[in-house]
Amino acid sequence: MPEFLQFLFSGLTVGAVYAMVALGFTLIYNASDVVNFAQGEFVMIGGMVTAFLGYAGVPLPLAALLAIAVAIVVGLLLHALAIEPARGASAVTLIIITIGASIFLRGAAQVIFDKQAHKIPAFSGDAPITFMGAAILPQSLWVLGGAVVTFVAIFLFMDRTLLGKAVLATASNRLAAQLVGINTRTVMALSFGASAAIGALAGILITPITLTSYDAGILLALKGFAAAMLGGMGNPLGAVLGGILLGLFEQFSAGYVSSSYKDAVAFITILLVLFVMPSGLLGRRAVERV
């Protein structure tokens, strides 16, 4: 039982991070049909900038806010300089552009920072809390709490504000969105900024547990993408569900089978989703009359 609980908690913790990355994929995909493979780099930027500002003596909360701001600027630049000029290009072209951007950001991080692994101090110390025989890091609670706050904020924004509805409208029908007077370019910029902020926050929350380095984004992007596919690309709720499930699969298989296959779980998941249910768990099964 303690073992089971242990895996459950670590599964939920990494799952929350995958869910945040998957949500970032979803927001950008919905606004622009772009699958942004630079999503993992936002997570890396969040962790790395916070760590280096911390070394420079900036207090942790301020460093975290600045790191999110840096990620947002990078997200907006990515949209303005790489995606917007290629508007109208095919999906494959846009994906290759984001892969290029991801390689560029990784290279820049290697030059600006370094190639070492870096850590941020845990927000509430490293002493584990014992719960029914399982040891839980206080940082895990920060990760889960941060993820929940992010999801609730995004859902409230989409459900309660006209701007949120405008984002949904743009995702559902870009032509009609333009015709009612929504500036779809602004909506796209907004979703790149929001995705970057969510990614950076995920990076800041998880770095005290997993460490970060210039190339930490690669695996996170692939796993976040697997989570988004599992949940159903384009569905925010699916992204959250997919992320949590993927985190649980990964930790349980690492715990009960072998930890050397941990990273393979995500890729087996992608393959299974593509073979068995290409639209994912909550994918668009739209009922639309014509």
């Binding site: 509805k165 949904l168 409208a169 559902s172 029908n173 032509l175 009609a176 015709l179």
Partner: peptide
């Protein structure tokens, strides 16, 4: 009002 209505189906 575009051809084919183009309503925001999920909303």
């Amino acid at each position: 009002v575009p051809e084919g209505r183009q309503v925001f189906a999920p909303l």
